[in-house]
């Protein structure tokens, strides 16, 4: 039987912690951003939408490499974090969270944007005539009507962060309990020619991803993909 060692256990817990935190943060940041993208007529819509979508098309190694340079002591982000007394972000869990936020952003923003756009203005205008305030309108009208979009965004944001590899490899430094996530651990097992251990983790990951996606797609037509 495929057994999972304690090292693998640490990697799994770390990955779940990372993906959970990133998903929550992305829903908080991504919802207003998706709303703005769905409704704005600003000239910035194109550029902002493109920046959000960049992680979809860029190789993770490109993202990871630039993040490593940007967050390094000579990079703009690195200078800022050092000036603020946070030190440098590469090789830290916080650094991974920030990198993952960028990396998984389109997977949360795009389904939400599609859901908000297809909602249209009519329900909101109706609610406004009934004197519902903006906050009230969002929670009692928008949220219930766009629930499938939120579900897709949450699942894709989470699973995509779980599957993140290239960025972590480029700026993680492979520190147990800090930056050594499941995908990196699998890679190490493969490279070290310990195929049995790699199989244990890899098979678990395939099954997990399949089950989550199967559940999601059984409930609804996906808003993305």
């Amino acid at each position: 039987m495929m057994s999972l060692g304690t090292e693998d256990g640490v990697a799994i817990l770390l990955t779940l912690k990372l993906a959970g935190l990133v998903t929550v943060l992305l829903l908080i940041v991504g919802t207003p951003l998706a709303w703005w993208l769905a409704h704005t007529r600003s000239a910035w819509k194109g550029p902002v939408g493109a920046v959000v979508a960049l992680p979809l098309v860029l190789p993770p190694t490109v993202l990871g490499f630039y993040m490593l340079l940007a967050m390094g002591p000579a990079g703009p982000v690195g200078r800022m974090t050092q000036a603020l007394g946070f030190g440098l972000l590469p090789f830290t869990f916080t650094g991974l969270v920030i990198a993952s936020l960028l990396y998984s952003l389109p997977f949360v923003v795009q389904p939400l944007q599609a859901a908000f756009a297809s909602l249209g203005n009519a329900p909101l205008e109706a609610a406004a005539t009934l004197r519902a305030g903006p906050v009230d309108r969002f929670f009692t009208v928008v949220l219930p009507l766009t629930r499938p979009g939120f579900l897709t965004a949450t699942v894709l944001g989470f699973t995509h962060t779980v599957g993140e590899f290239g960025v972590v490899l480029m700026m993680g430094g492979n520190i147990p309990g800090q930056t050594r996530v499941i995908s990196v651990q699998i890679y190490d097992h493969v490279e070290a020619m310990e195929y049995a251990r790699a199989h244990g983790l890899a098979a678990a990951m395939v099954i997990f991803s399949f089950l989550v996606l199967a559940l999601l797609y059984r409930r609804q037509r996906p808003a993305l993909l």
Binding site: L68, L69, M71, G72, P73, A74, P90, M170, M171, I175
Partner: peptide, 20 residues
């Protein structure tokens, strides 16, 4: 304080970029 590169090229990259 040890950070590991996947191979020696990446270890070099960590140092050359000033992160280590």
């Amino acid at each position: 304080r040890i950070v590991e590169g996947e191979n020696i090229a990446q270890a070099y990259q960590f140092v050359a970029s000033g992160n280590a």
